[in-house]
Design a protein around this nucleic acid. Sequence first.
DNA 1: GATGATTTGTGCGTATGTATG
DNA 2: GCATACATACGCACAAATCAT
Lengths: 228, 228
Amino acid sequence: MNKELIDFSPIQKPIPYYQQIQQSIKESIFNGLYKPGDRLYEVQIAKQYNISRSPVREAIRALVIEGLLVMDEKSQISVYKPTLKDVRDIYECRISLESTAVALATVRVKSKQLQELDETLKATAVAIKDKDADSIIANNARFHELILQYCGNERLIKIVGDLKGLINYYRVLNIQGTDRANTILKGHTQIFEAMKKRDPEKAADRLKEHTEEDLKNLIQVIEQLGER
Amino acid sequence: MNKELIDFSPIQKPIPYYQQIQQSIKESIFNGLYKPGDRLYEVQIAKQYNISRSPVREAIRALVIEGLLVMDEKSQISVYKPTLKDVRDIYECRISLESTAVALATVRVKSKQLQELDETLKATAVAIKDKDADSIIANNARFHELILQYCGNERLIKIVGDLKGLINYYRVLNIQGTDRANTILKGHTQIFEAMKKRDPEKAADRLKEHTEEDLKNLIQVIEQLGER
DNA sequence: GATGATTTGTGCGTATGTATG
DNA sequence: GCATACATACGCACAAATCAT
């Protein structure tokens, strides 16, 4: 009997601490527990999880390379806090990559997948009517994610995902009232229409416009924050 | 006297081992000492540099996130070995980002910087005449790097740099004879001409064509390698 | 399979550096 | 300027997993 052909795995190996810590710190940043600029301490984190400093150090090194944490010249670690220029640069990259993605997706997408996009748009409309902010955000994010998935370029998906992670904190702020939500939905609908017509250039252009609008709005929100 | 205003720094703090190791491993990959697929051992590396495993481990974690090293499910570390699809995906991302970069650069570039591009092209022509392969490669790379620098988006520069690092090993192979070098020079010249005319769209299109050609050639080279 | 040799994972001590009063 | 508290960098020891025989 060839064991390798059978999928047992009722028992599972323990995941190394340093990987779990890495994931956990990341989540703490995404969900806002650690805020941009917050300083992190190895010992403190180690104590929190009741483990030694070694795995914590390794996790931190990795997150620094990922860009979610930054290290100053004195080896002090803090949560990445993008400047306004960073936000612009990140969006410039996203626009470039995501418009490429939507063009690719437009060519490759199957009709069933188009249907999924359509359903997401409908769900967004319902959420707007219900004034359900969480659902609006979730559906908007899903629309972008689906397009990325359909482009078929895993490397691109990873890069865009990492970029989004860097400004995740600010994105939550980026829905201000029903007006804004409706504008976004209109943009998404235009992208969807272009995809349905199998017009990659148009889809890319629409996404570009839409995302630039998104950026403008985000910058406005950030600047308002700064004034407090 | 305010010391902070004076730039002393005749002495320098030691650079942490883990950073040096990280850099050193990276260079070993770039210069081909470690080849794609090669396995790495913590203890062995630690012994080589005559240090403990701690900094080595931290360096490895960072390089895994960077993508230059990969870790399998048994925590074994090896040098990233791109598949053919990876190469395509990476190029797709590069084409997207670099054509954005050249469009931005075309708008922002100063006449002195255009001159630098011009000089690089002339140096390439000389290198081709001299059949100096190293110089050809160096000048071609410089052309692309200058354009990136001029785009003004540091995030984009970093991402493209990382992407290039992932397929650095194959790039060295990507000059096959004078013909190929001349084709590349022609492509670069066309990009340069479009920039000089301050035509961002054209510059982007030319770069896209040029890089797609580059990809085709690289794939051919890789496939030939695979047949041996 | 069982055993010894590798290799990776984690805890901890110590040295060095940094901030604060 | 000094003393104290705190942080980080590194080495080392042992445990756990893996590999080869």
